[in-house]
Amino acid sequence: MSQTPAQSSEEKPKPRRFEPPVSPATQAFWDATREQKFLLQWCTDCRKAIFFPREVCPSCLGSSLEWKESAGRGRVYTYTVEYRPQNPNLAGPYTVALIDLEEGVRMMSNVVDCDPDRVSVGMDVGIAWEALSDGRHLPMFAPTGSTTGGDQ
């Protein structure tokens, strides 16, 4: 961020990537990312984690839902390395992956702090964060044991 040309302290930095909108059902999730807390939604009836967060449980249609903090540990289910990104602000190559979380749900993310050539199916990963322009953070994942995976 510090090397962006023509940066002025008055101006809010322009988002580099497409930043996720917030919906009523996901407000709590995104609020928690301000403190780099990774929340998962659970159905109190089914006792199953839900992802993506929504208004009702996709198993029972119940609305008895709660948020619990996740340790953010998972495994790479599959991935692709983007060599020619559609978004010109993102420089390839970088890795987009589907992560199977320990809680039994799957989400898309980037694998960071890891050379794309070294990413593999089955690799253990843990939560990492990238700051968004409005104080929220975007959940990303880094290989477990990586020395820089915590915060930035």
Binding site: P21, Q86, V96, M107, N110
Partner: peptide, 19 residues
């Protein structure tokens, strides 16, 4: 506006449709 794809996929720069 908010929709699941905008929230949970588009931020990660997956090229469409080939990604």
């Amino acid at each position: 506006g908010p929709n699941p794809m905008a929230e949970w996929e588009m931020p990660y720069g997956l090229r469409m449709p080939m990604g």
